[in-house]
């Protein structure tokens, strides 16, 4: 009897083990978060996917609490209101240091102190859009100088009258943090869409790369119109374009990416810029900051910067007003053109 029991025990274990094997990938969790002025969608896989997804939400909410311009208690608001902040946390300092680097490397095309100008256009949220007078812009442009943001130990300070907006780097920084969350929770794969920022972590459940479409800037209303599709594994990609947040006045269209040099929406001949880079420390923030800056700089300067870049390598997809899609060499074999858009495709090196 004893032996029979033991055999029965074993058999049952084996049977149940074989019959009910489920892939851990089937466990998956998707959450939507409205934060940082955008809608975020995060999908995590693996056995700990629900916990990981909620940890992602906490991370984002925590960042937003520190970086929000609208929350009067945030570190950024306190810095903006007082001009100095004595007890800043390392997180904000780290973002400001990165912002300073990209400001310098892009010749001021990326500048977090452009905030007062952006606010004058109404793109900082609130009362709706308007075209500021040239006089007003001239006055506000004098406040724009990314190098006036200083840090000394824990103390941060702005130039007189300055204010900062981290909207063009915060989501990329958040994407960097999510990589840390994914690693902590041993998420085998995941996809995070943070309003124009995509973190493609690992590969798809079927083992192929994540397929990320680049919206056709000429058809912003058609969600199935792509300038092309990127195949990404363990990568960040960020697109900046002027086709989604805009308003029209007297028949002219004004979009939300303000050139710190002119105070006007950037008019560089590009309709969208996509920056992609592999996952490494700080590369999410880099992609975010560069996508804005290169959109302002235009095709020629953008490609120049790409050729002479000495930091973490990145690749580009530029869509131009005259109907071309320019793909940099390193991305060419991971980029599929979408012929229906009528674009001429070029690969540059």
């Amino acid at each position: 009897m004893k032996r029979l029991t033991a055999y029965g025990f074993l058999m049952l274990l084996l049977l149940s083990g074989c019959g009910a094997q489920l892939s851990p990938d089937e466990a998956q969790e998707s959450i939507q978060v409205i934060a940082m002025d955008t809608a975020m969608l995060i999908t995590t896989y693996g056995e700990r996917s629900p916990a990981a997804a909620y940890a992602c939400e906490d991370t984002i909410r925590d960042l937003e609490k520190k970086l929000s311009r609208t929350d009067p208690d945030s570190e950024v608001s306190r810095l903006n209101n007082a001009g100095t902040l004595e007890d800043s946390e390392s997180e904000l300092r780290s973002i400001l240091i990165q912002a300073g680097q990209y400001c310098q490397k892009t010749g001021g095309a990326f500048d977090i102190t452009v905030a007062p100008v952006v606010a004058a256009w109404g793109f900082a949220g609130g009362d709706g859009y308007r075209v500021p007078s040239q006089k007003e812009l001239d006055r506000l442009l004098e406040l724009v100088d990314g190098f006036a943001v200083k840090g000394n130990g824990q103390t941060l300070s702005l130039g007189p009258g300055q204010s900062i907006d981290l909207g063009a780097i915060a989501k990329g920084y958040a994407a960097d943090k999510l990589v840390g969350v994914f690693q902590e929770y041993e998420v085998p794969r995941g996809l995070a869409q943070l309003g124009g920022n995509v973190l493609a972590y690992g590969d798809r459940p079927d083992g192929t790369p994540w397929r990320v479409g680049i919206q056709d800037p000429a058809k912003p209303d058609d969600q199935n119109a792509f300038a092309g599709v990127l195949e990404l594994t363990d990568a960040f990609a960020v697109t900046s374009g002027g086709y989604q947040r805009y308003f029209e006045e007297n028949g002219k269209r004004y979009h939300h990416i303000i050139d710190p040099a002119t105070g006007y929406p950037a008019d560089s001949g590009l309709t969208s810029v996509t920056v992609a880079a592999g996952i490494s420390d700080g590369s999410g923030a880099m992609c975010d900051a560069l996508s804005t800056a290169l959109f302002i700089m235009g095709e020629e300067k953008a490609l120049d910067l790409w050729r002479h870049w000495d930091g973490t390598p990145f690749e580009l997809v530029l869509v131009t007003e005259d109907g071309r899609v320019v793909v940099t060499e390193g991305l060419a074999d991971r980029f599929t053109p979408d012929e229906s858009g009528g674009y001429a495709y070029e690969t540059v090196s």
Partner: peptide, 20 residues
């Protein structure tokens, strides 16, 4: 569904143990 299928096996097993 999977849990129910497994419960038949584990239920049988605890039944066996109780019978003993």
């Amino acid at each position: 569904p999977v849990l129910l299928a497994v419960s038949l096996l584990t239920g049988g097993l605890t039944g066996l143990a109780s019978a003993c």
